[in-house]
């Protein structure tokens, strides 16, 4: 039997396999240690980090929906200095590339966090989260306006040499326009999707279930939307695409890869199965073996390349 080459390159970040963790669902890499080693992953993406510590939204922060999860955590994080001092050193012993998700209210915030993180030898890449709803420019999200998204990317680019992944929000009219704008501004890769804006109402109390009223939907419920967006974006950009949204099994991950993703990430799936990431790695490997696929890259975009 062949031994398929599972390695991929995401904007200069070499990964032994295409499976990454999704930001905000894996803490800072420590929480799943009892179930598998982070070194089994392609890359470890940690929680969104802002310049200052943020306490996040009040409870309740989670609502389960059919095959989905609404969350309104509100970017709770200890702030970039505490992350550098208390969280990242712990990851020194790992060989897995560590990617830090960064967020902010202003362009300056993003630049500051990027610059500070560049000083850490642990960090191998940054993922810019531009789906944060509270921003300077009249409350318009960076993630829903191509010009503003490009401005953030350009500014961050000047403050770091690290590979830049830009994480796109699905809450836009044209995902392709967003993708082209950030590619042109210097992004090395694109990840999509972040959560879909949603809400739920408790008919007993007659009030929204989330204290924040609205939240982000993730899990299997969003998968078809995410696959469609990866399909559209991957055909228009030259940089690699990381696909995520509702991946639970290797079959789900393969769908994203065939839609055009070079790598995939897993968030909510990890909550269901604490060995979700390594199980997906194994499943992809077996699929390649059984189907005589020599390199995982040969499957990327195969659904449209061979149409």
């Amino acid at each position: 039997m062949i031994k398929p080459d599972m390695s991929v390159d995401i904007g200069g970040i070499r990964m032994q396999n295409p499976v990454m963790t999704a930001s905000g669902t894996f803490g800072f890499g420590e929480v799943y240690e009892d179930f598998f080693s982070a070194d089994e992953l392609g890359a470890l993406v940690v929680k969104g980090v802002t310049p200052e510590a943020r306490i996040g939204n009040p409870p309740s922060r989670l609502v389960e929906t059919p095959a989905g999860l609404l969350n309104a955590i509100g970017l709770e994080n200890p702030g970039v200095e505490a992350v550098l001092k208390d969280y990242l050193p712990h990851l020194k012993g790992y060989s897995v590339p560590v990617i830090v998700n960064i967020a902010g209210n202003t362009i300056e915030d993003y630049c500051l966090v990027a610059e500070r993180l560049s000083s850490s030898e642990v960090v191998k890449g940054l993922e810019i989260n531009i789906s944060c709803p509270n921003v300077k420019a009249g409350g318009m999200a960076f993630g829903s306006h191509p010009d503003m998204a490009a401005q953030v990317v350009r500014a961050v680019r000047k403050n770091t040499k690290l590979p830049l992944i830009v994480k796109l929000s699905p809450n836009v009219t044209s995902i392709v326009e967003m993708a082209l704008a950030v590619e042109e501004a210097g992004a090395d890769a694109i990840s999509l999707i972040n959560t879909l804006l949603g809400m739920a109402i408790d008919i007993e109390t007659r009030r929204p279930r989330l204290a924040n009223i609205v939240g982000g939907l993730s899990g299997p419920a969003v998968k078809p939307v995410a696959v469609r967006m990866v399909w559209q974006v991957a055909q228009h950009v030259k940089i690699p695409v990381i696909g995520l949204g509702g991946i639970i099994t290797a079959e789900d991950a393969l769908e994203f890869i065939m839609a055009g993703a070079t790598a995939v990430a897993i968030g909510t799936g990890q909550f269901l199965n604490p060995r979700c990431c390594p199980d997906v790695v194994k499943g992809i490997f077996e699929y390649c073996q059984n189907n005589n696929i020599k390199r995982i890259g040969d499957l990327t975009g195969i659904a449209w390349k061979e149409a």
């Binding site: 905000g24 669902t25 929480v31 799943y32 996040g56 409870p59 922060r61 989670l62 969350n71 909550f271």
Partner: peptide, 22 residues
Amino acid sequence: ACGVGACLGCTCEKGSSGEEGW
């Protein structure tokens, strides 16, 4: 959701012995 401290979803307000937060 996660049950292991990964998602920050299960918060409850800190009491008199701690600072502000969850």
